[in-house]
Simulated scan of single mutants.
Amino acid sequence: MADKCHMCLLGLIILCPLLTGMNGAETTHVFCSSGENVHLPCNIALSGCTSTTWNYNRHSSAVEMVSGGKKKNDIERHERLSLGSDCSLNIKNTKEDYGSYSCIQYVNGQQQGTDAHVHLHVLHGQCFCKSHV
């Protein structure tokens, strides 16, 4: 079973470059097993995270999860979220968290740089976590 899972994961890693750049932006692909903790990199962090916003998008509906460096309390999974010192988004016990995430940074209401896009793939079964840009 592990060999089959690793082959599937290898296939996904090979396909990722074909999926990246559809909208002109680079996307980081993160793979992990259901139930694992995951770290989604922001990669555009300014000093301090008070300017950081994290959005989650699945099925064409966007949800703001972090705004101004603080996680939103009115979202279903807020207790499993935390912001790393490098402004990364940490999710505990991933389940149905797959989808697209974007990290955006604002200073005085103006967006700084471009969005950092991360696509989280949650695999069911006994696989390992692997990050791929």
Rank of each mutant, 00 (worst) to 15 (best):
K92Y: 07
L81N: 04
I91F: 02
E76W: 09
E96L: 11
S67D: 11
K72L: 07
K92V: 00
S100A: 10
N73D: 09
S85Y: 05
C87A: 02
S88R: 00
I75E: 12
K72Y: 04
S67Y: 12
K72I: 06
K70H: 10
S85K: 11
R80Y: 11
C87R: 02
N93G: 15
C87F: 05
R80W: 03
S100K: 11
S88G: 07
S67P: 04
R80V: 03
K70I: 03
K92H: 13
L83A: 03
D86E: 05
E76A: 14
D97P: 01
R80K: 14
S82V: 07
Y98A: 15
C87G: 01
G84L: 04
E79G: 09
H78I: 04
R80E: 09
S88C: 02
Y98H: 14
R77W: 08
R77L: 13
N90G: 05
N90L: 14
K71H: 07
K92G: 06
H78N: 13
S82D: 05
C87M: 04
K72A: 11
K70N: 10
D86H: 09
N73W: 06
G68T: 10
I91P: 01
G68C: 05
R77C: 12
D97W: 01
D86Y: 08
Y98E: 15
K95E: 15
E76T: 11
K71W: 06
K70Q: 11
